[in-house]
Computed example of a mutant assay.
Amino acid sequence: AAGDTDKALALAKTAFALKPAHEETQDVLLKLQAQGADWKGARETLKAKLKHGSLPRDVHKRRDAVLALSEAKGVLSEDSGIDGQERAIEANKLSPDLIPAAVMAAKSYIQQGKPRYAARVISKAWAARPHPDLAGAFAEIVPDETPDKRIKRFRALTKTNPNDPETKMLLAELNIAAENFPDARRALGDLVETQADARALTIMAAVERGEGASDTVVKGWLARALSAPRGPQWVCDNCQHIHAEWTPTCDNCGALDTLSWKRPPQSEVQALSSAAMLPLIVGAIEEKSEEAIAEIDDAEIVDMNAADGQVNS
């Protein structure tokens, strides 16, 4: 309570040594270790919780993966490449659906010259939950391929979860990169009507631009994008706090392993993270879209929204 976390940690370790089966002591120690980035110690405490029956085996496996991933990130930040790669792969094996672990493991395999392993890791995670970072890692497997070859290679990924909004937007972006705007429109389907968010509407603006639509039409889509929901983000299940990036513990409430990739409550929406806009759209189209956004002033946005009956206070 006084903020002396070092002393609190020392006392918690002493209490844990005296009564390792005491659940409250386990929880306090685990929280302090996670806050102090003592991932190795936290994994030992987690193991004790499993041993003494205060944590179900499946929950232990998932949280151990989270801690292993955090340990891998810490090792990589210390420029210990091989150890970090091994821990990233370990985290992915413990919980294949943990998106950041899958991304880190895939990148480790790419560095080791094992592209098939990387593709397998990403595909397994994509089957559980499509995510832009997974698509980005999949693109890194063959960074210099042409847009048409990339579409062909990505079929192995996009055939899984084809109706997920992320899959539809990924396919649309890939076709925009190949300047195949009709297929991009088909890939997007009815997403802009059923689950419109800022990214889907921005993609639609790029499609319209590519097909030669007027500036008025393109601006209309961009205006809708500016006031649309931001789409899925990393949200704490415990306190609903939104994070720009995944973290093992919530920045707001300190809870361990509570971040989920989902649409936040509308009242909690914040700007899109850089990861949310997968950089697969052709640069020229991106530049034109940015110019179009810059040209829209507040009056135009209000006028366009008023036409749709979507004026916000």
Rank of each mutant, 00 (worst) to 15 (best):
K152A: 15
E193I: 07
Y117K: 14
E86L: 12
R87T: 07
E145N: 14
T194L: 10
K124Y: 09
N163A: 09
R87Q: 15
I176F: 05
E145K: 10
A200G: 03
I151Y: 15
D133W: 06
S95D: 10
E140Q: 14
D148E: 15
M169E: 06
A105R: 04
E193V: 13
N180A: 13
N175W: 12
L157T: 00
K114Y: 05
Q85Y: 12
N175C: 12
I110A: 05
A198T: 11
K159W: 05
E140M: 07
E179K: 14
A88P: 13
N161E: 13
Q111A: 14
R153P: 02
A106L: 03
L191G: 04
I89N: 01
R186K: 13
R150D: 04
S123Q: 11
Y117T: 05
P132Y: 12
A128I: 03
D83L: 07
L171I: 08
L174K: 03
I176P: 08
P182T: 08
Q111L: 04
K149R: 11
L188R: 10
M104T: 11
Q195L: 10
P182Y: 06
I110M: 11
D190V: 07
F181H: 09
N92F: 14
I141F: 06
P162H: 03
A137Q: 07
P143K: 07
A88W: 01
A128P: 03
R155C: 00
E145H: 09
P115D: 00
K93E: 15
R129Q: 15
R199E: 11
I141Y: 00
G189R: 01
G113M: 06
S123R: 07
E145C: 02
R116A: 15
I141E: 02
I141T: 09
R150P: 04
A156L: 03
R185W: 13
S95P: 00
D83N: 10
G113Y: 02
E193Y: 03
T160A: 11
L170W: 05
I151N: 14
A101T: 12
V192F: 10
G136Q: 09
K124L: 15
K159N: 11
R120S: 04
A128N: 02
V192H: 11
S108E: 02
I176C: 11
V192Y: 15
E179D: 06
R199Y: 14
F154P: 04
R150G: 01
I99E: 12
L191C: 03
A91K: 08
R186L: 14
P182K: 01
P132D: 01
K93V: 13
D144I: 06
A172L: 06
I122G: 08
W126C: 05
F154C: 04
T160G: 10
P115M: 04
E140L: 05
A125W: 00
R153K: 09
R199D: 08
K168V: 00
R87A: 13
D144W: 10
N175S: 06
L174R: 02
L170A: 04
I110P: 00
A102I: 03
Y117I: 07
Y117N: 15
K159P: 00
D190H: 07
N180M: 02
K114F: 02
P147R: 06
G136E: 14
V142I: 12
P165K: 09
G84I: 11
A184K: 01
A88Q: 13
R87S: 13
F154W: 08
A91W: 02
L201C: 09
R153S: 08
K114I: 01
K168Q: 08
R120I: 06
V121W: 06
K168E: 09
G136R: 15
K152D: 15
P182W: 13
